[in-house]
Amino acid sequence: MANIKQLSELPQRLSPGHSMCGGCGATIAVRQVLMGAGKTPVVCGAATGCLEVSTTTFPFTSWEGGFIHSTFESAAATMSGVEAAFRGLKRAGKIPADKKIKFVAFGGDGGTYDIGLQALSGALERGHDFLYVCYDNGAYMNTGIQRSGATPYSAWTTTSEVGNAVPGKRHFEKDLTSIVAAHHIPYAAQASISNWNDLVTKATKAMDIDGPTFLNVLAPCPRGWRVPFDQAVEIAKLGVATNYWPLYEVENDVWKLTENRRKLPIEDFLQPQGRFRHLFKPGNEHLIKEFQTNVDRHYAYIQARVEGSKVYQQKLEEAGLPLVSDDALAMQSGSKLPFQQ
């Protein structure tokens, strides 16, 4: 991958002048992800949400390349139509066969974990050549901080209120990256805006692959997380360092941790955030303990997938099976296969 100086020479993909809050993690994510396209033209799409409304207030678009939005739950489906058009028009000879475009769809956690999950699943299964990016800020921020399937356990939101009877969100977050990985797509990864090198490397890898790829990017929302507006990157850093947000990738079903150095207690991630303030009142230690237990359990799960991948590769080798079959790749890209009816 190019170094930061070389990256700085790439075309700008997201222009300033959008209306995202100052210090928003989502646009940091978009900028870093799109560096992965290099100099190839990119067509982007987005689910309804902060990113979409704030970057496309008519007549102001921040998207330097083509952009499309249709509805909240359909970023993946809409982009699959764009990509299908690219194939269909090439086959019809209406656009040059060698034209290259990268297709990238963005959705927040609400638009991805929850309402857009079906469309995402369908698009992944159909093998469209596109990258789907979830910018995960852990709640419906556009409508004013409501809980989503990505909201952490015990977090305050306006629909997981903290009161005498209920201590914030009662449910653990959905493991979206694993769900996506279960589609056995060529590449899925988890990244964070705080680890730009890791993120841009993953985005580059994802966009170079012919077929559906996925990135789940931790992109803090200072307003929703109740942290100062200059803290998006710092708090994401703590999310990674406490293993709240492990950085890993799943390439052809082989799981690999891409950052495995520090391990801080979960309090370091929770304490700076106003949405977890209630956890630090005397008597609520058990909630933090439960949070920590869940983080550790999930990290152990990821580690087990990494270990398991080694066994998997070994078994494939023993059986003489390839990790990826050429026919499947060709089929995916729409190439004609030798076939007798």
Binding site: I4, K5, G22
Partner: peptide, 29 residues
């Protein structure tokens, strides 16, 4: 430049050359 949410760190020839005050929201990231 890598972390500016508003693409407001001006860069030319691999070097920072200023801040785009027309767009910088002053977030402090």
């Amino acid at each position: 430049w890598m972390h500016c949410p508003d693409s407001s760190i001006k860069v030319a020839e691999q070097k920072m050359c200023g801040i785009d005050y027309e767009h910088c929201k002053g977030c402090g990231v």
